[in-house]
């Protein structure tokens, strides 16, 4: 019997564990929730948003477990889902922000419904908060691939080969992405330090 089929028979919330291929959804959740939540937090820097994306990630995991073909580790697959969900969430939020004036036209109170999420990252020490906020503002302006590579390498402390597996790229491509990300970030930070109001 195909292992994925075997696995999906056990994807309920309460079945016991036999081995790695018969993990229950709850066990998969317990094993990976911390990494997913933290990864989402690095993208959105906000507790509420990170929680929302984490929920979406595990709902997708629950729905797609029977399609998982064991070609990679389950945590790698979950990482991939978390990255895609986080990027989609940011894209959707930016679209909402862009069209906020239209919502305003049709809103009786004439108020903009979209609210910018505030920076709220519990993993950052108070004394570093402002500086890291500035760095994250610049990281958010990088292309998604470079941003992902930098987050995985510098914050999640993943090796190049692990990142390559998660991003479905070669190690060389990852190395080049990280280098380009670093130099882009450097120039953005330099511009920001010369002119703090410049956020482009």
């Amino acid at each position: 019997m195909k292992r994925s089929v075997f696995l999906c028979q056990y994807i309920t919330l309460s079945h016991p564990i036999d081995n790695i291929h018969t993990m229950t959804f709850e066990q998969i959740y317990n094993k990976n929730v911390k990494l997913v939540y933290n990864l989402c937090l690095q993208y959105v820097h906000n507790l509420e948003d990170a929680e929302e994306i984490t929920q979406d990630v595990f709902i997708s995991v629950h729905d797609s477990l029977n399609k998982f073909e064991f070609q990679s580790k389950i945590s790698t697959w979950i990482y991939r889902i978390a990255i895609n969900k986080s990027l989609d969430f940011i894209k959707a939020k930016n679209t909402k922000k862009r069209f906020a004036f239209i919502y305003r036209l049709f809103n009786e109170n004439n108020e903009i419904q979209y609210e910018q999420s505030h920076f709220e990252h519990p993993g950052i020490l108070m004394e570093n908060k402002e500086e890291i906020k500035q760095i994250f503002t610049r990281i958010d302006q990088l292309p998604p691939n470079q941003r992902t590579a930098l987050i995985l390498n510098k914050i999640e402390k993943k090796s190049h080969s692990e990142i390559a597996e998660i991003m479905l790229l070669s190690s060389k491509a990852v190395e080049s992405l990280i280098q380009r990300g670093k130099s882009n970030l450097q120039s953005k930070l330099k511009t920001a330090r010369v002119d703090p109001n410049n956020i482009v």
Binding site: V33, K34, L35, V36, Y37, N38, L41, Q42, T54, H121, P122, G123, I124, L125, N128, E131, I132, I135, K154, I155, K157
Partner: peptide
């Protein structure tokens, strides 16, 4: 500074 960010519990 980025590497000083600690992971938090869900």
């Amino acid at each position: 500074l980025l590497s000083q960010i600690s992971s938090v519990e869900a």
